[in-house]
């Protein structure tokens, strides 16, 4: 009996140890800097202070937080709107073809994130492919300024995180019992009504999981705003990056990081709760 109880723990031990040693402990170390002062020479002066947290709440930084949240939310909504129909189409494709379609959906992940982001620079810049294309179609005005705009940042984020959302939504769609849709039709609902009343509500946990994932990854992203936004859009991730790598203000960077991680944990927790709640409800109905 004791063997049965400990075996799962033993199996999880390497994973847990890995996470503790390379994720939790370093994170806690860095975050602990948030309670100290920046040394005059850029190091850390080990005098306890809460000043860094007060600075995080300063309207300037709060505005950067809110602006990042807005960009991340826009990204999330667009990603879901694109991913849902795609996931739906894949789940309706013949069983044998589905793995191939999924393979194509995640194919971009096989190349480096930076290279994919640079590809957008090649596409969007003023002398880039898009501008050359419209010029060859007879457009003669000033080249369009597509790059270094908020739109470019959102495009880059959507593009990079879309596969996550497709996979998350696909996983709930593919597990959906087809008999439920049949029952809906038998009871007189048309396809549209069946979708809105049966399919969509049952796949919301997948939408939520994909959505939270994109949101969390987008709000902390610093590479895409730096490259596609031309540094003109400051997101929280850039702010944290700057504190560590240019301003040499590790305590403030740590405090910002803590606020960011707290936001992510709250969201992931809420999403997990919602999913547990939804699947619990599902089981209740089935019984």
């Amino acid at each position: 009996m004791s063997f049965n109880a400990t075996r799962p723990n033993l199996l999880a031990a390497p994973g847990v140890a890995w996470l503790m040693a390379f994720m939790v402990v370093p994170c806690l170390l860095v975050l602990s800097y948030a309670f100290f002062q920046r040394g005059v020479w850029g190091g850390i002066d080990y005098t306890f202070t809460l000043e860094n947290f007060a600075r995080v709440a300063d309207p300037l930084y709060a505005r950067i937080f809110l602006n990042s949240a807005r960009i991340a939310l826009t990204t999330t909504v667009i990603a879901i709107l694109i991913a849902y129909p795609a996931a739906y189409a894949i789940s309706r494709a013949p069983r044998l073809r589905q793995p191939i379609l999924l393979f194509f959906a995640v194919l971009p992940f096989w190349s480096n994130y930076l290279i994919r982001t640079y590809a957008w620079i090649v596409l969007l810049n003023r002398e880039g492919l898009v501008n050359n294309l419209i010029r060859s179609l007879g457009y003669t005005g000033e080249p369009l300024s597509l790059l270094y705009t908020e739109g470019a940042v959102i495009t880059g984020l959507v593009y990079n995180y879309l596969p996550f959302v497709i996979l998350a939504i696909y996983s709930t769609l593919s597990r959906l019992n087809p008999e439920l849709m049949e029952a809906s039709r038998d009871l007189g609902a048309g396809p549209v009504r069946t979708f809105w009343r049966v399919t969509l509500p049952l796949t919301l946990p997948g939408v939520a999981a994909g959505g939270v994932f994109v949101f969390v990854l987008s709000i902390g992203n610093f590479v895409t705003p730096a490259l596609l936004g031309g540094g003109r859009f400051q997101m929280v991730g850039n702010l944290v990056y700057d504190q560590f790598l240019t301003a040499n203000d590790w305590p403030f960077g740590a405090a910002l990081g803590m606020a960011l991680i707290a936001t992510m944990i709250v969201l992931l927790f809420a999403q997990a709760r919602a999913t547990a709640h939804a699947s619990g409800e599902g089981r209740g109905e089935a019984a």
């Binding site: 920046r38 005059v40 020479w41 850029g42 300037l60 930084y61 505005r63 950067i64 602006n67 540094g231 003109r232 859009f233 400051q234 850039n238 702010l239 700057d242 504190q243 301003a247 040499n248 203000d249 403030f252």
Partner: peptide
């Protein structure tokens, strides 16, 4: 030159510009 304590004012100004 190294800015010492004024570094904070520079960082803040840069954040304000970027935001």
């Amino acid at each position: 030159r190294d800015l010492g304590p004024a570094q904070k004012d520079y960082s803040r100004a840069v954040s304000e510009i970027k935001a």
